[in-house]
Design a protein around this nucleic acid. Structure first.
Lengths: 275, 275
DNA sequence: AGCCTCTATTGGTCGGACCACTTTTGCATG
DNA sequence: CATGCAAAAGTGGTCCGACCAATAGAGGCT
């Protein structure tokens, strides 16, 4: 828990920390005021980087509803003038919020607020699963062992007919016993699990689970099992999960998902120990 | 799943997509080569924004082990020269990676790679819980209902004596039946659950769970229960959880945690329906 | 040796210029 | 009048060069 995080949204809901409240005068003179305040000796003001102040201002604009999801922000040039910062700093602020999935800038068109859906905000999440190695990868799998069974059980209860069709179609794309390496299998495998979790109707759950899944890791799993001639086992797992879903049997679904994640976890454990 | 995400770490492990592989010649002439390539008509090259190319280069440096966790990168000026981009673009690239928790720049000292621990990478995660409202907040709680019971059960089995002491100390700081509003209670409540999850020894789990918790939301929960005179119920929940932990009883811990999360979830449901 | 100042290094900010893409305008055409 | 295309205005993307501010290290002082 480092201090002063870039994502300190708490501030949005607190009444302007320390320095006397400049409660939104006319937008026109905001820039001038900021410049003025910078001129006079204000140690507290100069403390926080200009760029961060800019991000905070934008976040405040969103939190206050001044700009809603999907709406367009003022021009970079306008914003920088309004906030009394240079366009470079303004751009860095926008870049930060873009990276967080809060903003989205379209070349020549303008800067827009995203839909602010869980999937938007959690896109950065996937970094973890991607860079993780060894021990951390095991930890990630352990978290998935907690989530996937519960999610699969929920899906068994909630999935619509179309959801099940989609899952079934992806299951067919996952190879059975063939020994030719196929990128499509990895994608289908990933899509299979994502489709299941998505059919719970909980977008947040889906986004979190997606973040914990990684293409490269899945590829490793398939490669490892292929080498050991165990790809059939993986297919059995998937079929068992699918059957439970079609039967709308939450308990069976939970069990099948647990078995699957555990298999992968055990394999990774052994694989890490071996190398 | 938007195209071309800023966090497309997959590329790190693929053999340089399209344009003929420039497999790391002398670092000295890299900049010159980039400038040259930009000069000639290369439509494919100009497609991807310069800034993104810069972030990719840095990520590649980390993935290849050229710079490890905690180590210092070359100066912004050196990097920009080396990559053949302006310092402004270089700074935006660094800003993006800083936001993701991959880099950390210290004024006057240099830019460093973080420890790349789960907590570093998931700091951005908290945005979700903070901006979420209504339906999404319920979804977040639903995910916590899957994680916390499992985590608490795991903690009952794994927590060290020091862990339990810490949890107990935080429990004492959570108020009982007093009706005076106390910020400390919210902080202690948050810390209580975080300490439990942390004592599972799974840093990834802890980081994910932390990301799903929000100070402002917890404050709302306490305020709501105080209004209804139900703060004693919350305290009972916490005591029950603590007892299960000291008794090292995973099943009891799981049940107690489930009861607690469910209580909060039901309250939120009612609260949302009322407003 | 220990402390302090002073300086070189390095990130932070600024302003302005130009390029690339998008949208809108408005004219010419059918 | 409707349509289509070309010019122009608007906007993000990139670059440059300068200066400010914080840090770290060199060197001198006590």
């Amino acid at each position: 828990m480092r201090g002063r995080s870039m994502v300190d949204w708490y501030d949005l809901f607190r009444p302007e920390g320390s320095h006397g409240g400049t409660l939104d005068p006319k937008p026109d003179i905001l820039g001038a005021m900021d410049r003025l305040e910078r001129a006079v000796s204000d140690p507290d003001r100069g403390r926080t980087p200009v760029t961060q102040r800019a991000t905070d201002r934008i976040k405040a604009m969103i939190a206050s509803g001044e700009v809603g999801p999907g709406e367009r922000l003022p021009t970079e040039r306008d914003l920088s003038a309004q906030f009394g910062v240079s366009r470079s700093s303004m751009r860095e602020a926008i870049r930060a919020l873009t990276t967080l999935g809060v903003l989205e800038s379209r070349h020549g068109a303008g800067v827009y607020v995203t839909a602010l859906r869980p999937a938007d905000l959690l896109e950065t999440f996937s970094v973890l699963a991607e860079v993780s190695q060894g021990r951390t990868l095991l930890e990630v799998l352990q978290v998935r062992r907690m989530l996937e069974p519960a999610a699969t059980a929920l899906a068994a209860a909630r999935a619509s007919a179309e959801d099940l069709d989609r899952v079934g179609a992806l299951l067919d794309r996952i190879e059975g016993g063939s020994d030719t390496f196929c990128t499509d299998t990895v994608a289908a495998d990933l899509g299979f699990h994502q489709a299941i979790v998505a059919s719970t109707g909980n977008a947040t759950l889906a986004a979190v689970n997606d973040g914990l899944s990684s293409r490269t890791f899945n590829a490793r799993v398939w490669a490892g099992h292929r080498e050991a001639g165990l790809t059939a086992k993986l297919r059995e797992d998937h079929e068992r999960i699918h059957e439970a879903l079609v039967a709308r049997d939450p308990d069976a679904a939970r069990a099948a998902a647990t078995v699957h994640v555990l298999r992968v976890e055990r394999w990774l454990s052994a694989d890490l120990a071996g190398s």
